[in-house]
Write a protein that binds this DNA or RNA. Sequence first.
DNA 1: ATAATTTCTTGACCTATATCATTGTCCCGA
DNA 2: TCGGGACAATGATATAGGTCAAGAAATTAT
Lengths: 254, 254
Amino acid sequence: MSTVSLSDQAVHRPRRLVLAGMEGCTNCAACEVRGHGVCSALADKELERLSRAAVKVTVPAGHMFIEEGSDAHDFFNVTGGTVKLFKSLPDGRRQITGFVGVGHFLGLAVSDHYAFGAESVEQVQLCRFSRTKLETLMEEFPSIERRLLAEAANELVAAQDQMLLLGRKTAHERVASFLYGRLVEKYGEHIPPVADILLPMTRADIADFLGLTVETVSRTFSRLRREHLIGVGAGQDIHIPSVSRLEAIGSGDG
Amino acid sequence: MSTVSLSDQAVHRPRRLVLAGMEGCTNCAACEVRGHGVCSALADKELERLSRAAVKVTVPAGHMFIEEGSDAHDFFNVTGGTVKLFKSLPDGRRQITGFVGVGHFLGLAVSDHYAFGAESVEQVQLCRFSRTKLETLMEEFPSIERRLLAEAANELVAAQDQMLLLGRKTAHERVASFLYGRLVEKYGEHIPPVADILLPMTRADIADFLGLTVETVSRTFSRLRREHLIGVGAGQDIHIPSVSRLEAIGSGDG
DNA sequence: ATAATTTCTTGACCTATATCATTGTCCCGA
DNA sequence: TCGGGACAATGATATAGGTCAAGAAATTAT
Protein backbone atom coordinates (compact mmCIF):
# COMPACT_ATOMS: atom_id res chain seq x y z
CA MET A 1 0.00 0.00 0.00
CA SER A 2 2.38 2.75 -0.97
CA THR A 3 2.38 3.83 -4.56
CA VAL A 4 -1.18 4.65 -5.45
CA SER A 5 -2.12 6.00 -2.05
CA LEU A 6 -2.04 9.67 -3.04
CA SER A 7 -5.76 9.72 -3.40
CA ASP A 8 -6.40 7.75 -0.22
CA GLN A 9 -8.10 10.61 1.54
CA ALA A 10 -10.74 10.66 -1.13
CA VAL A 11 -11.25 6.94 -0.70
CA HIS A 12 -12.97 7.34 2.64
CA ARG A 13 -15.99 8.54 0.83
CA PRO A 14 -18.77 5.94 1.06
CA ARG A 15 -18.35 2.91 -1.20
CA ARG A 16 -21.93 2.78 -2.29
CA LEU A 17 -20.92 4.29 -5.55
CA VAL A 18 -22.49 2.05 -8.13
CA LEU A 19 -21.49 1.35 -11.65
CA ALA A 20 -22.07 4.33 -13.87
CA GLY A 21 -21.43 6.65 -10.97
CA MET A 22 -20.14 9.66 -12.83
CA GLU A 23 -19.34 13.29 -12.51
CA GLY A 24 -19.66 15.78 -15.33
CA CYS A 25 -16.36 15.84 -17.18
CA THR A 26 -13.78 18.31 -16.14
CA ASN A 27 -11.28 19.69 -18.57
CA CYS A 28 -9.34 17.36 -20.82
CA ALA A 29 -6.67 19.99 -21.45
CA ALA A 30 -5.84 19.96 -17.75
CA CYS A 31 -6.29 16.22 -17.52
CA GLU A 32 -3.60 14.32 -15.69
CA VAL A 33 -3.31 11.88 -18.58
CA ARG A 34 -2.92 14.49 -21.25
CA GLY A 35 0.14 13.17 -22.98
CA HIS A 36 -0.92 9.56 -22.56
CA GLY A 37 -3.38 7.42 -24.39
CA VAL A 38 -5.74 8.70 -27.00
CA CYS A 39 -5.39 12.25 -25.80
CA SER A 40 -1.71 12.51 -26.63
CA ALA A 41 -2.60 12.62 -30.29
CA LEU A 42 -4.72 15.71 -30.00
CA ALA A 43 -4.21 19.39 -30.48
CA ASP A 44 -5.88 21.81 -28.11
CA LYS A 45 -8.84 22.40 -30.33
CA GLU A 46 -9.42 18.71 -30.63
CA LEU A 47 -9.11 18.25 -26.89
CA GLU A 48 -11.74 20.91 -26.40
CA ARG A 49 -14.12 18.84 -28.50
CA LEU A 50 -13.11 15.65 -26.74
CA SER A 51 -13.91 17.26 -23.38
CA ARG A 52 -17.51 17.58 -24.29
CA ALA A 53 -17.79 13.96 -25.31
CA ALA A 54 -16.03 12.56 -22.27
CA VAL A 55 -17.33 11.75 -18.83
CA LYS A 56 -15.10 11.02 -15.88
CA VAL A 57 -16.03 7.95 -13.91
CA THR A 58 -14.64 6.55 -10.68
CA VAL A 59 -14.96 2.83 -10.06
CA PRO A 60 -14.14 1.34 -6.64
CA ALA A 61 -11.87 -1.71 -6.35
CA GLY A 62 -13.27 -5.01 -7.51
CA HIS A 63 -16.12 -3.70 -9.60
CA MET A 64 -16.97 -5.06 -12.98
CA PHE A 65 -17.78 -2.17 -15.28
CA ILE A 66 -17.85 -4.04 -18.57
CA GLU A 67 -19.75 -7.28 -18.67
CA GLU A 68 -18.73 -9.84 -21.25
CA GLY A 69 -21.23 -9.85 -24.07
CA SER A 70 -23.09 -6.72 -23.01
CA ASP A 71 -23.90 -3.95 -25.45
CA ALA A 72 -20.78 -2.02 -26.37
CA HIS A 73 -21.96 1.53 -25.85
CA ASP A 74 -18.78 3.08 -24.56
CA PHE A 75 -15.07 3.43 -24.95
CA PHE A 76 -12.89 4.10 -21.94
CA ASN A 77 -9.55 5.65 -21.30
CA VAL A 78 -7.94 4.66 -18.01
CA THR A 79 -6.84 7.77 -16.13
CA GLY A 80 -6.03 6.16 -12.80
CA GLY A 81 -5.57 2.70 -11.31
CA THR A 82 -5.37 -0.74 -12.89
CA VAL A 83 -8.05 -2.63 -14.75
CA LYS A 84 -8.19 -6.32 -15.59
CA LEU A 85 -9.71 -7.55 -18.83
CA PHE A 86 -10.93 -11.10 -19.05
CA LYS A 87 -12.87 -13.77 -20.88
CA SER A 88 -14.66 -16.66 -19.24
CA LEU A 89 -15.91 -20.13 -20.04
CA PRO A 90 -19.42 -21.23 -19.07
CA ASP A 91 -18.14 -23.29 -16.12
CA GLY A 92 -16.32 -20.32 -14.62
CA ARG A 93 -12.79 -20.87 -15.87
CA ARG A 94 -11.39 -17.46 -16.54
CA GLN A 95 -8.55 -16.00 -18.53
CA ILE A 96 -7.35 -12.50 -17.78
CA THR A 97 -6.16 -11.17 -21.12
CA GLY A 98 -4.47 -8.11 -19.74
CA PHE A 99 -3.94 -5.68 -16.92
CA VAL A 100 -4.20 -2.17 -18.21
CA GLY A 101 -3.06 0.96 -16.47
CA VAL A 102 -3.06 4.71 -16.86
CA GLY A 103 -3.22 6.00 -20.40
CA HIS A 104 -4.54 2.80 -21.85
CA PHE A 105 -7.50 2.64 -24.04
CA LEU A 106 -10.24 0.13 -23.65
CA GLY A 107 -13.34 -0.94 -25.47
CA LEU A 108 -12.36 -1.60 -29.06
CA ALA A 109 -15.18 -3.91 -29.97
CA VAL A 110 -15.61 -5.54 -33.30
CA SER A 111 -19.32 -6.09 -33.02
CA ASP A 112 -21.79 -4.12 -30.94
CA HIS A 113 -21.12 -6.37 -27.98
CA TYR A 114 -18.03 -6.41 -25.83
CA ALA A 115 -16.04 -9.58 -26.36
CA PHE A 116 -14.53 -9.35 -22.87
CA GLY A 117 -15.28 -8.20 -19.36
CA ALA A 118 -13.46 -5.52 -17.43
CA GLU A 119 -13.07 -5.12 -13.69
CA SER A 120 -11.19 -2.67 -11.53
CA VAL A 121 -8.25 -4.19 -9.65
CA GLU A 122 -7.98 -1.19 -7.39
CA GLN A 123 -9.91 2.07 -7.38
CA VAL A 124 -9.91 3.27 -10.96
CA GLN A 125 -10.57 6.49 -12.79
CA LEU A 126 -11.93 6.27 -16.28
CA CYS A 127 -12.67 8.70 -19.00
CA ARG A 128 -15.73 7.47 -20.82
CA PHE A 129 -16.86 8.28 -24.37
CA SER A 130 -19.87 7.04 -26.20
CA ARG A 131 -18.86 4.96 -29.18
CA THR A 132 -21.05 6.92 -31.55
CA LYS A 133 -19.56 10.19 -30.37
CA LEU A 134 -16.06 8.85 -30.69
CA GLU A 135 -16.86 7.72 -34.21
CA THR A 136 -18.00 11.21 -35.07
CA LEU A 137 -14.85 12.62 -33.57
CA MET A 138 -12.74 10.19 -35.56
CA GLU A 139 -14.32 11.43 -38.76
CA GLU A 140 -13.40 14.93 -37.80
CA PHE A 141 -9.94 14.22 -36.40
CA PRO A 142 -8.11 11.43 -38.16
CA SER A 143 -5.32 11.79 -35.62
CA ILE A 144 -7.56 10.06 -33.10
CA GLU A 145 -7.92 7.18 -35.47
CA ARG A 146 -4.19 7.05 -36.03
CA ARG A 147 -3.61 6.99 -32.29
CA LEU A 148 -6.13 4.22 -31.87
CA LEU A 149 -4.48 2.18 -34.58
CA ALA A 150 -1.12 2.56 -32.84
CA GLU A 151 -2.68 1.49 -29.57
CA ALA A 152 -4.29 -1.53 -31.21
CA ALA A 153 -0.97 -2.50 -32.81
CA ASN A 154 0.67 -2.32 -29.41
CA GLU A 155 -1.96 -4.47 -27.82
CA LEU A 156 -1.64 -6.95 -30.63
CA VAL A 157 2.06 -7.30 -29.99
CA ALA A 158 1.40 -7.76 -26.27
CA ALA A 159 -1.25 -10.35 -27.09
CA GLN A 160 1.20 -12.32 -29.22
CA ASP A 161 3.75 -12.28 -26.42
CA GLN A 162 1.09 -13.53 -24.06
CA MET A 163 0.16 -16.35 -26.45
CA LEU A 164 3.79 -17.44 -26.49
CA LEU A 165 3.77 -17.35 -22.70
CA LEU A 166 0.53 -19.30 -22.34
CA GLY A 167 1.32 -21.83 -25.01
CA ARG A 168 4.97 -22.51 -24.42
CA LYS A 169 6.46 -21.20 -21.20
CA THR A 170 6.91 -23.00 -17.88
CA ALA A 171 5.37 -21.66 -14.66
CA HIS A 172 8.79 -20.33 -13.64
CA GLU A 173 9.16 -18.46 -16.92
CA ARG A 174 5.59 -17.20 -16.81
CA VAL A 175 5.92 -15.60 -13.41
CA ALA A 176 9.29 -14.07 -14.33
CA SER A 177 7.77 -12.70 -17.57
CA PHE A 178 4.86 -11.33 -15.64
CA LEU A 179 7.05 -9.49 -13.16
CA TYR A 180 9.18 -8.13 -15.96
CA GLY A 181 6.03 -6.98 -17.73
CA ARG A 182 5.00 -5.10 -14.63
CA LEU A 183 8.36 -3.35 -14.66
CA VAL A 184 7.82 -2.34 -18.28
CA GLU A 185 4.39 -1.00 -17.34
CA LYS A 186 5.89 0.95 -14.47
CA TYR A 187 9.12 2.25 -16.00
CA GLY A 188 8.54 2.11 -19.75
CA GLU A 189 11.80 1.84 -21.70
CA HIS A 190 14.08 2.85 -18.88
CA ILE A 191 13.96 0.06 -16.36
CA PRO A 192 16.64 0.42 -13.69
CA PRO A 193 18.89 -2.64 -13.14
CA VAL A 194 17.49 -3.04 -9.62
CA ALA A 195 13.84 -2.26 -9.13
CA ASP A 196 10.70 -2.58 -7.05
CA ILE A 197 7.09 -3.12 -7.95
CA LEU A 198 3.87 -3.06 -6.07
CA LEU A 199 1.41 -5.59 -7.38
CA PRO A 200 -2.15 -4.39 -6.98
CA MET A 201 -3.66 -7.70 -8.09
CA THR A 202 -4.19 -10.89 -6.09
CA ARG A 203 -2.47 -14.23 -6.65
CA ALA A 204 -5.73 -15.47 -8.13
CA ASP A 205 -5.66 -12.69 -10.73
CA ILE A 206 -2.05 -13.45 -11.54
CA ALA A 207 -2.96 -17.12 -11.91
CA ASP A 208 -5.82 -16.30 -14.26
CA PHE A 209 -3.50 -14.10 -16.27
CA LEU A 210 -0.74 -16.70 -16.52
CA GLY A 211 -2.94 -19.73 -17.12
CA LEU A 212 -1.91 -21.32 -13.81
CA THR A 213 -3.54 -22.07 -10.46
CA VAL A 214 -3.17 -19.91 -7.36
CA GLU A 215 -1.11 -22.62 -5.71
CA THR A 216 1.36 -22.83 -8.56
CA VAL A 217 1.74 -19.06 -8.61
CA SER A 218 2.34 -19.05 -4.88
CA ARG A 219 4.86 -21.88 -5.07
CA THR A 220 6.62 -20.16 -7.94
CA PHE A 221 6.94 -16.91 -6.01
CA SER A 222 8.43 -18.95 -3.19
CA ARG A 223 10.85 -20.59 -5.57
CA LEU A 224 11.91 -17.25 -7.05
CA ARG A 225 12.44 -16.01 -3.51
CA ARG A 226 14.54 -19.06 -2.62
CA GLU A 227 16.58 -18.41 -5.76
CA HIS A 228 17.06 -14.77 -4.71
CA LEU A 229 15.49 -13.58 -7.94
CA ILE A 230 12.91 -11.62 -6.02
CA GLY A 231 12.47 -10.33 -2.51
CA VAL A 232 8.93 -10.38 -1.30
CA GLY A 233 8.54 -7.49 1.13
CA ALA A 234 5.57 -6.74 3.26
CA GLY A 235 2.30 -7.08 1.41
CA GLN A 236 2.44 -6.90 -2.34
CA ASP A 237 5.78 -5.20 -2.62
CA ILE A 238 8.30 -7.08 -4.73
CA HIS A 239 11.98 -6.29 -4.88
CA ILE A 240 13.95 -7.31 -7.93
CA PRO A 241 17.70 -7.37 -7.32
CA SER A 242 18.58 -8.22 -10.91
CA VAL A 243 16.14 -7.13 -13.56
CA SER A 244 18.27 -8.56 -16.35
CA ARG A 245 18.38 -11.98 -14.70
CA LEU A 246 14.61 -11.94 -14.31
CA GLU A 247 14.12 -10.89 -17.88
CA ALA A 248 16.41 -13.66 -19.11
CA ILE A 249 14.40 -16.28 -17.26
CA GLY A 250 11.13 -14.84 -18.47
CA SER A 251 12.25 -14.96 -22.07
CA GLY A 252 13.42 -18.55 -21.90
CA ASP A 253 17.15 -18.01 -21.44
CA GLY A 254 17.28 -19.94 -18.22
CA MET B 1 -8.75 -33.99 -51.11
CA SER B 2 -11.91 -32.33 -52.16
CA THR B 3 -12.54 -28.80 -51.04
CA VAL B 4 -9.79 -26.54 -52.28
CA SER B 5 -8.68 -28.66 -55.19
CA LEU B 6 -10.07 -26.37 -57.88
CA SER B 7 -6.68 -24.84 -58.49
CA ASP B 8 -4.82 -28.13 -58.48
CA GLN B 9 -3.91 -27.97 -62.16
CA ALA B 10 -2.00 -24.77 -61.65
CA VAL B 11 0.01 -26.29 -58.80
CA HIS B 12 2.07 -28.48 -61.12
CA ARG B 13 4.13 -25.49 -62.10
CA PRO B 14 7.79 -25.90 -60.95
CA ARG B 15 8.52 -25.34 -57.28
CA ARG B 16 11.89 -23.66 -57.68
CA LEU B 17 10.46 -20.23 -57.17
CA VAL B 18 12.47 -18.56 -54.40
CA LEU B 19 11.58 -16.00 -51.79
CA ALA B 20 11.12 -12.51 -53.13
CA GLY B 21 10.24 -13.91 -56.48
CA MET B 22 7.88 -11.23 -57.69
CA GLU B 23 6.08 -10.00 -60.72
CA GLY B 24 5.31 -6.37 -61.37
CA CYS B 25 1.93 -5.65 -59.90
CA THR B 26 -1.06 -6.21 -62.04
CA ASN B 27 -4.25 -4.29 -61.55
CA CYS B 28 -5.73 -3.98 -58.09
CA ALA B 29 -9.13 -3.11 -59.52
CA ALA B 30 -9.23 -6.51 -61.19
CA CYS B 31 -7.65 -8.21 -58.20
CA GLU B 32 -9.28 -11.40 -57.03
CA VAL B 33 -9.34 -10.08 -53.47
CA ARG B 34 -10.95 -6.78 -54.29
CA GLY B 35 -13.73 -6.83 -51.76
CA HIS B 36 -11.59 -8.43 -49.09
CA GLY B 37 -8.99 -7.03 -46.76
CA VAL B 38 -7.61 -3.55 -47.01
CA CYS B 39 -8.79 -3.18 -50.56
CA SER B 40 -12.47 -3.47 -49.70
CA ALA B 41 -12.31 -0.04 -48.13
CA LEU B 42 -11.21 1.68 -51.26
CA ALA B 43 -12.88 3.54 -54.04
CA ASP B 44 -11.63 3.08 -57.61
CA LYS B 45 -9.46 6.14 -57.53
CA GLU B 46 -7.82 4.94 -54.34
CA LEU B 47 -7.30 1.49 -55.75
CA GLU B 48 -5.58 3.01 -58.73
CA ARG B 49 -3.09 4.62 -56.36
CA LEU B 50 -2.76 1.46 -54.35
CA SER B 51 -1.89 -0.46 -57.51
CA ARG B 52 1.22 1.53 -57.99
CA ALA B 53 2.42 0.92 -54.46
CA ALA B 54 1.74 -2.79 -54.47
CA VAL B 55 3.81 -5.68 -55.71
CA LYS B 56 2.45 -9.17 -56.16
CA VAL B 57 4.59 -11.90 -54.67
CA THR B 58 4.27 -15.67 -54.83
CA VAL B 59 5.80 -17.71 -52.03
CA PRO B 60 6.10 -21.49 -52.29
CA ALA B 61 4.95 -23.74 -49.46
CA GLY B 62 7.04 -23.77 -46.31
CA HIS B 63 8.96 -20.57 -46.89
CA MET B 64 9.56 -18.01 -44.21
CA PHE B 65 9.03 -14.57 -45.67
CA ILE B 66 9.08 -12.55 -42.48
CA GLU B 67 11.82 -13.29 -40.02
CA GLU B 68 11.17 -12.51 -36.37
CA GLY B 69 13.02 -9.37 -35.41
CA SER B 70 14.01 -8.36 -38.92
CA ASP B 71 13.47 -4.84 -40.22
CA ALA B 72 9.82 -4.17 -40.86
CA HIS B 73 9.96 -2.75 -44.37
CA ASP B 74 6.74 -4.12 -45.76
CA PHE B 75 3.09 -4.76 -45.20
CA PHE B 76 1.36 -7.67 -46.87
CA ASN B 77 -2.10 -8.54 -47.92
CA VAL B 78 -2.73 -12.25 -48.39
CA THR B 79 -4.36 -12.84 -51.77
CA GLY B 80 -4.05 -16.61 -51.90
CA GLY B 81 -3.17 -19.52 -49.61
CA THR B 82 -2.58 -19.71 -45.88
CA VAL B 83 0.16 -18.13 -43.82
CA LYS B 84 1.24 -18.97 -40.30
CA LEU B 85 2.47 -16.30 -37.91
CA PHE B 86 4.64 -17.27 -34.99
CA LYS B 87 6.93 -16.30 -32.16
CA SER B 88 9.80 -18.39 -30.83
CA LEU B 89 11.86 -18.84 -27.71
CA PRO B 90 15.66 -19.09 -27.87
CA ASP B 91 15.61 -22.88 -27.37
CA GLY B 92 13.27 -23.41 -30.31
CA ARG B 93 9.92 -23.65 -28.59
CA ARG B 94 7.46 -22.03 -30.92
CA GLN B 95 3.99 -20.56 -30.66
CA ILE B 96 1.95 -20.03 -33.79
CA THR B 97 -0.17 -16.98 -33.06
CA GLY B 98 -2.43 -17.34 -36.03
CA PHE B 99 -3.17 -18.84 -39.41
CA VAL B 100 -4.21 -16.14 -41.80
CA GLY B 101 -5.90 -16.62 -45.12
CA VAL B 102 -7.10 -14.68 -48.13
CA GLY B 103 -7.98 -11.06 -47.52
CA HIS B 104 -6.03 -10.82 -44.31
CA PHE B 105 -3.60 -8.14 -43.62
CA LEU B 106 -0.21 -8.73 -42.16
CA GLY B 107 2.69 -6.72 -40.89
CA LEU B 108 1.32 -4.24 -38.38
CA ALA B 109 4.50 -3.62 -36.47
CA VAL B 110 4.79 -1.37 -33.51
CA SER B 111 8.48 -0.71 -33.84
CA ASP B 112 10.56 -0.89 -36.98
CA HIS B 113 11.16 -4.58 -36.41
CA TYR B 114 8.66 -7.36 -36.90
CA ALA B 115 7.66 -8.87 -33.58
CA PHE B 116 6.80 -12.18 -35.24
CA GLY B 117 7.79 -14.45 -38.08
CA ALA B 118 5.62 -15.48 -41.01
CA GLU B 119 5.80 -18.59 -43.12
CA SER B 120 3.68 -19.94 -45.94
CA VAL B 121 1.74 -23.09 -45.06
CA GLU B 122 0.97 -23.80 -48.69
CA GLN B 123 1.79 -21.82 -51.81
CA VAL B 124 0.79 -18.28 -51.06
CA GLN B 125 0.11 -15.12 -53.01
CA LEU B 126 0.82 -11.84 -51.33
CA CYS B 127 0.32 -8.25 -52.19
CA ARG B 128 3.25 -6.33 -50.80
CA PHE B 129 3.42 -2.63 -49.92
CA SER B 130 6.29 -0.71 -48.49
CA ARG B 131 5.41 0.62 -45.06
CA THR B 132 6.44 4.14 -45.94
CA LYS B 133 4.28 4.10 -49.06
CA LEU B 134 1.36 2.73 -47.14
CA GLU B 135 1.80 5.48 -44.57
CA THR B 136 1.67 8.07 -47.31
CA LEU B 137 -1.43 6.45 -48.69
CA MET B 138 -3.04 6.44 -45.27
CA GLU B 139 -2.52 10.19 -45.03
CA GLU B 140 -4.26 10.60 -48.32
CA PHE B 141 -7.02 8.07 -47.80
CA PRO B 142 -8.21 7.81 -44.21
CA SER B 143 -10.49 4.98 -45.29
CA ILE B 144 -7.41 2.76 -45.46
CA GLU B 145 -6.63 3.63 -41.89
CA ARG B 146 -10.18 2.93 -40.85
CA ARG B 147 -10.05 -0.44 -42.54
CA LEU B 148 -6.76 -1.23 -40.82
CA LEU B 149 -8.18 -0.31 -37.46
CA ALA B 150 -11.12 -2.62 -38.05
CA GLU B 151 -8.75 -5.41 -39.03
CA ALA B 152 -6.64 -4.82 -35.93
CA ALA B 153 -9.73 -4.87 -33.73
CA ASN B 154 -10.72 -8.18 -35.28
CA GLU B 155 -7.32 -9.68 -34.69
CA LEU B 156 -7.38 -8.46 -31.13
CA VAL B 157 -10.63 -10.26 -30.48
CA ALA B 158 -9.20 -13.41 -32.05
CA ALA B 159 -6.09 -13.05 -29.92
CA GLN B 160 -8.16 -12.82 -26.76
CA ASP B 161 -10.05 -15.95 -27.73
CA GLN B 162 -6.77 -17.69 -28.30
CA MET B 163 -5.47 -16.60 -24.88
CA LEU B 164 -8.56 -18.14 -23.29
CA LEU B 165 -7.88 -21.30 -25.25
CA LEU B 166 -4.20 -21.48 -24.35
CA GLY B 167 -4.64 -20.55 -20.73
CA ARG B 168 -7.76 -22.43 -19.78
CA LYS B 169 -8.98 -25.05 -22.24
CA THR B 170 -8.28 -28.78 -22.28
CA ALA B 171 -6.67 -30.47 -25.28
CA HIS B 172 -10.07 -31.79 -26.32
CA GLU B 173 -11.58 -28.31 -26.22
CA ARG B 174 -8.59 -26.79 -27.98
CA VAL B 175 -8.77 -29.08 -30.96
CA ALA B 176 -12.55 -28.65 -31.19
CA SER B 177 -12.12 -24.85 -31.03
CA PHE B 178 -9.46 -25.01 -33.69
CA LEU B 179 -11.63 -26.98 -36.09
CA TYR B 180 -14.54 -24.67 -35.47
CA GLY B 181 -12.26 -21.71 -36.14
CA ARG B 182 -11.30 -23.24 -39.46
CA LEU B 183 -14.98 -23.44 -40.32
CA VAL B 184 -15.42 -19.78 -39.49
CA GLU B 185 -12.44 -18.96 -41.70
CA LYS B 186 -13.94 -20.98 -44.52
CA TYR B 187 -17.63 -20.10 -44.28
CA GLY B 188 -17.72 -16.82 -42.39
CA GLU B 189 -21.03 -16.26 -40.64
CA HIS B 190 -22.95 -18.91 -42.50
CA ILE B 191 -21.55 -22.23 -41.39
CA PRO B 192 -23.71 -25.14 -42.54
CA PRO B 193 -24.79 -27.61 -39.81
CA VAL B 194 -22.73 -30.35 -41.47
CA ALA B 195 -19.44 -29.32 -43.01
CA ASP B 196 -16.04 -30.29 -44.35
CA ILE B 197 -12.67 -28.66 -44.09
CA LEU B 198 -9.33 -29.27 -45.64
CA LEU B 199 -6.50 -28.49 -43.28
CA PRO B 200 -3.44 -27.24 -45.12
CA MET B 201 -1.23 -27.28 -42.02
CA THR B 202 0.60 -30.19 -40.42
CA ARG B 203 -0.12 -31.67 -37.00
CA ALA B 204 3.05 -30.00 -35.78
CA ASP B 205 1.69 -26.61 -36.84
CA ILE B 206 -1.61 -27.33 -35.15
CA ALA B 207 0.27 -28.34 -32.01
CA ASP B 208 2.30 -25.12 -32.06
CA PHE B 209 -0.91 -23.17 -32.51
CA LEU B 210 -2.75 -24.91 -29.68
CA GLY B 211 0.11 -25.05 -27.21
CA LEU B 212 0.23 -28.85 -27.32
CA THR B 213 2.58 -31.53 -28.64
CA VAL B 214 2.13 -33.34 -31.94
CA GLU B 215 1.34 -36.53 -30.07
CA THR B 216 -1.44 -34.94 -28.05
CA VAL B 217 -2.94 -33.40 -31.17
CA SER B 218 -2.85 -36.74 -32.90
CA ARG B 219 -4.40 -38.56 -29.96
CA THR B 220 -7.07 -35.90 -29.67
CA PHE B 221 -8.00 -36.22 -33.33
CA SER B 222 -8.28 -39.96 -32.75
CA ARG B 223 -10.47 -39.38 -29.73
CA LEU B 224 -12.74 -36.99 -31.64
CA ARG B 225 -12.99 -39.62 -34.37
CA ARG B 226 -13.87 -42.32 -31.82
CA GLU B 227 -16.54 -40.00 -30.46
CA HIS B 228 -17.91 -39.47 -33.98
CA LEU B 229 -17.38 -35.73 -33.67
CA ILE B 230 -15.21 -35.73 -36.76
CA GLY B 231 -14.58 -38.02 -39.66
CA VAL B 232 -11.00 -38.01 -40.89
CA GLY B 233 -11.08 -38.72 -44.60
CA ALA B 234 -8.10 -39.33 -46.81
CA GLY B 235 -5.28 -36.90 -46.17
CA GLN B 236 -6.16 -33.65 -44.46
CA ASP B 237 -9.84 -33.72 -45.17
CA ILE B 238 -12.02 -33.48 -42.08
CA HIS B 239 -15.73 -34.13 -42.04
CA ILE B 240 -17.82 -32.57 -39.28
CA PRO B 241 -21.21 -34.24 -38.89
CA SER B 242 -22.41 -31.81 -36.22
CA VAL B 243 -20.92 -28.36 -36.27
CA SER B 244 -22.98 -27.25 -33.28
CA ARG B 245 -21.76 -30.17 -31.17
CA LEU B 246 -18.18 -29.35 -32.09
CA GLU B 247 -18.68 -25.70 -31.29
CA ALA B 248 -20.21 -26.55 -27.92
CA ILE B 249 -17.21 -28.65 -26.97
CA GLY B 250 -14.79 -26.01 -28.16
CA SER B 251 -16.44 -23.35 -26.07
CA GLY B 252 -16.43 -25.40 -22.90
CA ASP B 253 -20.01 -26.67 -22.91
CA GLY B 254 -19.01 -30.30 -22.82
C1' DA C 1 7.85 -47.93 -59.46
C1' DT C 2 10.65 -47.71 -55.53
C1' DA C 3 13.50 -45.68 -52.17
C1' DA C 4 14.02 -41.88 -49.02
C1' DT C 5 11.91 -38.69 -46.15
C1' DT C 6 8.60 -36.59 -43.74
C1' DT C 7 4.33 -36.83 -41.27
C1' DC C 8 1.14 -39.28 -38.44
C1' DT C 9 -0.38 -42.64 -35.00
C1' DT C 10 -0.09 -45.31 -31.00
C1' DG C 11 1.93 -47.25 -26.74
C1' DA C 12 4.58 -47.01 -22.25
C1' DC C 13 6.13 -44.15 -19.04
C1' DC C 14 7.10 -39.69 -16.60
C1' DT C 15 6.74 -34.99 -14.84
C1' DA C 16 4.95 -30.35 -14.31
C1' DT C 17 1.20 -28.63 -12.76
C1' DA C 18 -3.56 -29.33 -10.88
C1' DT C 19 -6.33 -30.67 -7.00
C1' DC C 20 -7.41 -31.22 -2.31
C1' DA C 21 -6.55 -30.09 2.39
C1' DT C 22 -4.55 -27.48 6.15
C1' DT C 23 -2.63 -23.74 8.40
C1' DG C 24 -1.05 -19.20 8.65
C1' DT C 25 -1.48 -14.14 7.68
C1' DC C 26 -3.47 -9.93 6.94
C1' DC C 27 -7.22 -6.75 6.90
C1' DC C 28 -11.33 -4.55 8.22
C1' DG C 29 -15.27 -3.85 10.97
C1' DA C 30 -17.54 -3.81 15.43
C1' DT D 1 -9.15 -5.97 20.87
C1' DC D 2 -11.16 -9.34 18.99
C1' DG D 3 -13.30 -12.12 15.27
C1' DG D 4 -14.50 -13.16 10.63
C1' DG D 5 -13.40 -13.45 5.86
C1' DA D 6 -10.40 -12.94 2.20
C1' DC D 7 -5.80 -14.00 0.79
C1' DA D 8 -1.51 -16.62 0.81
C1' DA D 9 1.69 -20.50 1.65
C1' DT D 10 2.73 -25.22 1.77
C1' DG D 11 2.21 -30.31 1.91
C1' DA D 12 0.22 -34.71 -0.06
C1' DT D 13 -1.62 -36.74 -3.90
C1' DA D 14 -3.62 -37.14 -8.66
C1' DT D 15 -3.70 -36.45 -13.58
C1' DA D 16 -3.52 -34.29 -18.16
C1' DG D 17 -0.48 -33.90 -21.16
C1' DG D 18 4.59 -34.34 -22.16
C1' DT D 19 8.50 -37.39 -23.50
C1' DC D 20 10.55 -41.25 -25.61
C1' DA D 21 10.21 -44.93 -28.82
C1' DA D 22 8.53 -47.60 -32.65
C1' DG D 23 6.01 -48.51 -36.56
C1' DA D 24 2.58 -47.17 -40.31
C1' DA D 25 1.14 -44.03 -43.85
C1' DA D 26 1.72 -40.55 -46.87
C1' DT D 27 4.49 -37.59 -49.70
C1' DT D 28 8.52 -36.47 -52.52
C1' DA D 29 12.50 -37.59 -55.02
C1' DT D 30 15.03 -40.83 -58.14
